[in-house]
Design a protein around this nucleic acid. Structure first.
Lengths: 133, 133, 133, 133
DNA sequence: GTGGTCTAGACCACG
DNA sequence: GTGGTCTAGACCACC
C-alpha cells in the first residue's frame, strides 16, 4: 500500500493517513486479520512523527476499523455493521456532496453513475460481484 | 432556512455555516438570485461573530456559490459548471465514503439507493429532468 | 465613451468610473477642453447614484485631470506635468507590477513589449508618433 | 526585508503587507524555498495584529506566491506561470498606468525607459537572461 | 444601512 | 511553537 502525504494540505496529516488506510482496506489491499505496519515502521516510511501515526491508529481503532493488540500490533477488523450513528453521518455527508454536485450543474444520472463506478472499484468481497444482482 | 451549529464540533463554525448554506441552496430553500441574510443578521441569528459570517461568505464567494454585491449584499449564483478540479475532489470524497460504507458492511445496492434518495431531495430545478417519477 | 461597471467587484464604483474616464481621455476619446457629461447625465447612463459620480469628478479634479466650472460643467484639462509625487507613485506601482510579472515567470523582453504595445495604443497626441524621434 | 506601513492609507494593511512581500520576493530579497517570518514574528515586527498577517499569508497562498506548510511555516514558491487571468489583469493595470502617464505629459520613450529600469532591478534569477548588460 | 477592516486577547489543533 | 479560529467591540468606506 502506497502512502502519499501532502504536508501543505489543510487536512491534518493524521487524517490523511487515516483516509488512505481506510481506502486501502476498502480496496482490498489490506484484508481482515492482516497486520498493519508498526507505528515506527509507518512513521519511517511516510516520513512523519511516530506521534502522528499513533494518533491515526487510535482514531482507526475508535472507529472500529482496526484492533490494536499489545503483542500482535494493529490488525484489520472484519467488516462491521452500519449503526444508526454511522448512517446519520453518511447521510449528512452525501447530502452535502449532492448539494454541491447539483449546484455545479451535475445531473442526477451523472452523479449516480459516478457513485456506482467508484463503489464498484471497492473491495470485491464487500462490494459484491454477481452475488448481489 | 434554519441554522444549527455545534460549537463543540472540531469543524470550524465558518465551515459548518458554509455547509448548511450550500445544502440549503441545493435543497432549493434559497434560489438563484435570491438574497442571503446580511452578515450582521446571520451573525445575530446564529449567535456568532460577524467576522465568522464574513469568512463564510468570502468562502462561498470564492467557490462560486454566491456573489457579493456592494449594493444588494449577497445573492445566490445560478448553477455553475463542474470543472476538473471539482470532479477530482468529488471523486476522492466519494471514494472515501464508499470505502467506509463498504467496511461498515453496506452492500452496493443499499449504498446506491441511499445516494439516489438523497440526490432526489435536491432542488428539482437543478437536479433536473422529468426522468425521476 | 462606453462605461461598463461591475457592482460585484471589490473596486469601489467611483474608482471604476475614475479609471474608465482616465483611460478614455488617455485613448483620446475625450480631448483637452471637451466637456464631460453632467453628473446627472452620467449617473443616469451608468445607473448609479449621483453622489457616486460626484465623488468621481471631485477625485479627477483633485488629480488635475479635469476642471469643474460652475457654468460650463466639467472639462478635460490639457496635458499636465509629471511632478515628483506622481513619479514616485508611478515607480512604486511599476515596481509591484514588475515583481508580480517576474514571479509569474514573464521575461523582461515579454514584459517590456507589453508595456510598449499598451502605451502605443494611448492618445497619439501624447504618446507621440514620429514627432518625438 | 524592511516593512513600512502607512496606517493612514486607504489601502488595507494586509494588502500593503502583501505588496511589500511580493516586491521583496521579486527583488530577490527572499528566494524560492526560503522561509517567511512566522505570523507572530511579522505581526510583532510590523506592529499589527496576528490576524492581519494571517490574512496576508492566506492571500499570498491563494495567489500562488507562497506555500504554507503545517510543519515549516510559510515558504516562497518557485516562479509560476502567467495564466490568462493574470495577463488580463496585468494588461488592464498597464493600460491605466499608461493613460495616467500620458496625461501627465510623459513621452513613450520616457515611460518605457522607466519600465525597463524598474524591471531590471528585479531578481536576476527570475528576470533572467544575459541580455541586459 | 451595508460589507470590510482591525485590534487585543484568547483557546485549540497540530506535529 | 506553529498556524487556525473565534470573540467583542470598534471604526471606516461605500452607496
Amino acid at each position: 500500500m502506497l502512502i502519499t502525504l501532502d504536508t501543505k494540505s489543510s487536512i491534518p496529516i493524521y487524517v490523511q493517513l487515516r483516509n488512505q488506510i481506510v481506502t486501502g482496506i476498502g480496496r482490498g489491499e489490506l484484508k481482515a486479520g492482516e497486520s498493519l505496519p508498526t507505528v515506527r515502521q509507518l512513521a519511517a516510511d511516510a516520513g512523519v512523527n511516530t506521534m502522528t501515526v499513533n494518533k491515526t491508529y487510535q482514531l482507526l481503532k475508535a472507529e472500529g476499523f482496526i484492533e490494536i493488540d499489545r503483542r500482535k500490533g494493529a490488525t484489520v477488523c472484519p467488516v462491521g455493521t452500519a449503526d444508526a450513528d454511522y448512517r446519520e453521518k453518511l447521510e449528512k455527508e452525501l447530502e452535502l456532496l449532492s448539494a454541491e454536485a447539483s449546484l455545479k450543474g451535475m445531473e442526477k444520472q451523472e452523479f449516480l453513475q459516478l457513485c456506482e463506478k467508484i463503489f464498484r472499484q471497492m473491495n470485491p468481497e464487500n462490494a459484491g460481484g454477481v452475488s448481489y444482482d
